[in-house]
């Protein structure tokens, strides 16, 4: 298999780390947004509630169970 130990293969590019510093605020914003979505699928209107009512919990109910989150 292609274990890239030598530079002799020009087709296989060397791993060049992704520059992170400039993109950090962006990346953090995206990460927080993703965690918020996870919260809505996994916990909203169960243990904690930001939106009143039960419809979020009820709507994602089966997914919450099958994705491994505690439901009720």
């Amino acid at each position: 298999m292609s274990v890239s130990t030598s530079v002799s293969q020009p087709a296989v590019p060397l791993p060049v780390a992704v520059p992170l510093r400039a993109a950090l605020p962006w990346a953090i914003f995206a990460g927080v947004l993703m965690l918020l979505v996870t919260y809505f699928v996994g916990a909203e209107q169960g243990a904690v509630s930001l939106v009143s009512g039960e419809w979020v919990h009820e709507f994602v109910h089966d997914g919450r169970h099958l994705l491994g989150f505690p439901c009720h």
Binding site: G31, V37, F40, V60, G63
Partner: peptide, 15 residues
């Protein structure tokens, strides 16, 4: 509901 939950969770995990 199930599709929305798995789709949203997939979106979050993908990001």
């Amino acid at each position: 509901g199930l599709a929305t939950a798995t789709g949203a969770y997939g979106l979050a995990l993908g990001g």
